[in-house]
């Protein structure tokens, strides 16, 4: 009985925090006001302030976690909406995404290994360029920590949006498709939201790259990461 009350409180609390942050983000449209970022910070602070264990919070949180699987399935819909672009530019988008996936996994592992980072942390950052629900499943299957994976995904998303203008300049990426694929491959949904602000075509390319990247990384990350470590 007690667990049901705790669970409900955790779920309702998370919903209220999310909705509040969502409204705020609509007013102040910046990467740092993203509900996942500010919302997570608020809940972490509440847990620390009231000495609540993460396990206690997860009595309810686990119910929200149950929806991560269907959330990934739902991504078929935006991909379906972009099916014409997918067909028309299949090779350019796929090639960029595959190369990006390999570069992301290898550079992450090599840099971390070189700096002597612990193995479970390396396994948590291998899949940082793909959307959270896919990334945490990959991290978990490799032996990484899911919350770490979620935070690395967030850093890749928000950091990627901040550095994008410099990267496009440095790599001389001026084509709308190249920019879309670059930001979608590296910074998943957060990057895609940014790309959409610049125009529908770049946003569409970013959407396709983000979804393809999730599929590709989930296939090659286990092979590449295990082989490299």
């Amino acid at each position: 009985m007690n667990n049901i009350i705790i669970g409900l409180l955790a779920i309702i609390g998370t919903l209220i925090v999310y909705l509040f942050m969502w409204k705020l983000h609509r007013r102040v449209l910046l990467p740092v006001t993203l509900p996942i970022f500010l919302g997570s910070i608020v809940i972490v602070l509440v847990l620390l302030l009231f000495h609540i264990d993460y396990d206690t919070y997860m009595i309810g949180g686990e119910w929200i976690n149950q929806l991560l699987g269907p959330a990934v399935v739902a991504l078929a819909y935006p991909l379906y909406q972009q099916r014409d672009l997918l067909k028309r530019l299949f090779v350019p988008i796929l090639m960029g995404t595959i190369v990006g996936a390999v570069v992301g996994i290898m550079s992450g592992v090599l840099l971390a290994k070189w700096l002597g980072v612990e193995e479970f942390i390396i396994y948590s950052l291998v899949s940082k360029s793909v959307t959270t629900p896919v990334s945490i499943v990959i991290a978990d299957s490799l032996g990484g920590a899911m919350p770490l994976a979620a935070v690395f995904v967030m850093i890749a998303g928000m950091g990627g949006v901040l550095i994008a203008p410099f990267i496009f300049k440095a790599f001389k990426i001026d084509h709308v498709i190249g920019r879309g694929v670059g930001i979608g491959s590296a910074s998943h949904a957060i990057g895609t939201a940014r790309a959409m602000e610049d125009g529908p075509l770049g946003g569409s390319a970013s959407t396709v790259a983000m979804v393809l990247s999730a599929i590709i990384v989930s296939i090659i990350a286990p092979i590449l990461a295990v082989w490299m470590l």
Partner: peptide, 16 residues
């Protein structure tokens, strides 16, 4: 509202 579902997993960072 995809990111709503990511919050509990992300909050786990409290242990790290």
């Amino acid at each position: 509202h995809l990111t709503l579902f990511f919050i509990p997993a992300t909050v786990g960072i409290v242990n790290y």
